[in-house]
Write a protein that binds this DNA or RNA. Sequence first.
DNA 1: TTACTTTTGCAATTCAGTTGCATTAAGAAA
DNA 2: TTTCTTAATGCAACTGAATTGCAAAAGTAA
Lengths: 125, 125
Amino acid sequence: MGVVRKTKSVMTVLNTFEQTGKAVSAVALVEHLQDSMNKTTVYRILDRLEDQGTLHSFMGKDGLKWYAKCDGCSSTHHIDSHPHFQCRGCGKTECLSMDVTIPPIPKHKVDFAELLLIGLCETCS
Amino acid sequence: MGVVRKTKSVMTVLNTFEQTGKAVSAVALVEHLQDSMNKTTVYRILDRLEDQGTLHSFMGKDGLKWYAKCDGCSSTHHIDSHPHFQCRGCGKTECLSMDVTIPPIPKHKVDFAELLLIGLCETCS
DNA sequence: TTACTTTTGCAATTCAGTTGCATTAAGAAA
DNA sequence: TTTCTTAATGCAACTGAATTGCAAAAGTAA
């Protein structure tokens, strides 16, 4: 799992998530931070923070990997199963603060769920 | 939107979905059909069948694009919102025949939802 | 058949994400 | 603080899913 050191780069990444409060794609983050750190570093920090349980990730309809802050998760316990909304107009993606009830599936062990809602945000509709 | 002609290649692709009855990743389909048609052709057929409403697609946790047959969808009306289960052991992905109730989101127009459940299938658990 | 449009194959390209390796910086211990 | 170990970083090269351009082939309607 590896210790996550609080380097400048790590703090910069975390600050970005604090500031936006929204989900951010890895690509967008690389672009946004291109002057302060390397692309590879961004990807590796995202990986580590996800392992640690600080962030969670999901695949957007656009094929990009998106990250958002976890609410009360750790590396062993992943309680975060809130839905995400992705606008098909502008691409903005946000976490929705509601819980998803995952139906039990016979003969399957469900670890966690990803609910992605596709539609139009207020600005785009 | 473009007419979809029932060419040999199109029928071959459709037959694959009929036979497996499961979701198939584009990559797996390309691999499976490599002797009968070109990679590009597979991707384009999948695109067309999705436009037409015959197939629906979703992004797997693995970053691959998965396709499955739609039940009662057309190009204008997408009623398919059943969940998919992806095994983190073997990667197999299946459609689950249950409906997801999409909660209404204030100020957002939700077109459709993708619910991806991650866990272990019967064989892998 | 003819005329027209869609579909296909192939090669080249794009681009998100990864890897290997040498260098740098955390941070614990002395 | 200085030393020492290990994690983190930068850079360049690479991987692989998916896309694009274009000429050739195959559908389809008349």
